[in-house]
Amino acid sequence: MNIFRLAGDLSHLLAIILLLIKIWKTRSCAGISGKSQILFAIVYVSRYLDLVTTFISVYNTFMKLVFISTSVATIYLMYVKFKATYDHNHDSFRIEFLLVPCFLLALLINNAFTPLEILWTFSIYLEAVAILPQLFLVSKTGEAESITSHYLFALGSYRALYLLNWIYRYYAEGHYDLIAIFAGAIQTILYCDFFYLYITKVLKGKKLQLPA
């Protein structure tokens, strides 16, 4: 463990908590993409199957259980409890166009051709693009509530911090995984225009308005 990865995990946890607070306090999931939340749940389930086979640490097991349970809870809140506030019309991204290519790519480019490894690789590729429905929704509605933009900033920062973690681990431990690094780089790049808007607008107290 290093400071970059710990900061990344905490930023990730913060994002998930911010999302739950937004939905619970406003009793609405307006402006949130249910499709992205479904993709995140698939990412965590397919990545954390090793929960039952490998014990790394209490921290590792605890965080995996938190990520899986909160992602399922978010989907429940969006599609059941606050279903009436879910923005079906704008949340129209076809996630099969992400699921199928990621799975096929995982079959082609992976570290080992075993079920657990293929699923881990699939989850890494899927996580890189899982935010697309959410960014697509924000671009269609043209704006986002400030707490939603804080959620996106924390979520985008987590993988950016992981990039620093991988640089650190390469030099400190000689450990690296090109699949995780390339996917993490793409994932972070997808947030760049949002990061720009967040820093130039939201941090100045303005609302996140995308140029129409």
Binding site: D50, I56, N60, M63, A180
Partner: peptide, 10 residues
């Protein structure tokens, strides 16, 4: 990359 090393990340 050692097996455990790679899989100790979230």
């Amino acid at each position: 990359a050692n097996r455990l090393g790679k899989k100790d990340e979230l």
